[in-house]
Amino acid sequence: MVTPAPTTNPSRPKMQGNPYVPMPATVKEVIQETPVIKTIRVVLDDENARTNFHFEPGQVGQVSVFGVGEATFVIASPPTETNYLQFSVMRAGEVTSAIHKLNVGDKVGVRAPLGNFFPYTSWQGKNVFFIGGGIGMAPIRTILLHLLAHKQDYGTISLLYGTRTPNDMSYKYELEDWLNREDLNCNLCIDTAAPNWPHRVGLIPNVLKELAPSPKNTVAVLCGPPIMIRFTIQALQELGFAPEAIVTTLERRMKCGLGICGRCNIGGSYVCVDGPVYTLKQLQSLPNEL
């Protein structure tokens, strides 16, 4: 897999061929992250497709369970991971329920990569503060791991990951490592106090204000449910982050993923092709339709 040269802005990888036809893939591993979140790791069946597949962190994929339908998820594995594609899926609707029923060896389809990606080359030399809420940790994970793999190009990398309860934390098997890493300032929080919880307690915007990261030469990257995004953006602005230094990734109901079908648009901007990654500054220029 190609690791983009750090100095040039990488061009956007796109789907090849008939963009409506998914690439057949096989479920390689299923991880129960929380009672409602499962991570599936899939491998593309076709060897050619596997070797030619490139994506950038933040890009999304449409996962098909044939007979049920398709839904969009961020590719939660870093581009450097060439053995599989990872999707973390919260059970909510019809397709996500079907994904939760998948077993190792089952067939799925993947249409990827779709959408834009995190503008990480423009963050070089800056500190990056990641904020993930609930299932919103999935896109954060891909870019976080990508940056940690290129640590030398960035300043301090910090993470604030919050969920409702300790049980709702995904990637528990990695959290220990993240907490211990020298090159990552990792903070965890839960909404309300729970027994044996050694980390912070409070809603993400409040914990963020406690941590009070300096906006100086820092980019804040956040993802989470709409309500968390709204209040966290407020908190970041109070801390002095400029709109262009706040980056988020949006989620919308999508069907085609190709910028045609007209579901995910915010005004004239189609989240599936113009997003899902937006800076607050870009969002402010769009009609308020979140």
């Binding site: 409506y20 098909s64 044939f66 007979g67 049920v68 339908g69 398709e70 069907k255 085609c256 045609i260 079908c261 007209g262 579901r263």
Partner: peptide, 13 residues
């Protein structure tokens, strides 16, 4: 108008 939806109809197996 060109909005569309995509649905699967029929059990794969």
């Amino acid at each position: 108008c060109y909005c569309f939806t995509i649905t699967d109809e029929g059990d794969a197996q």
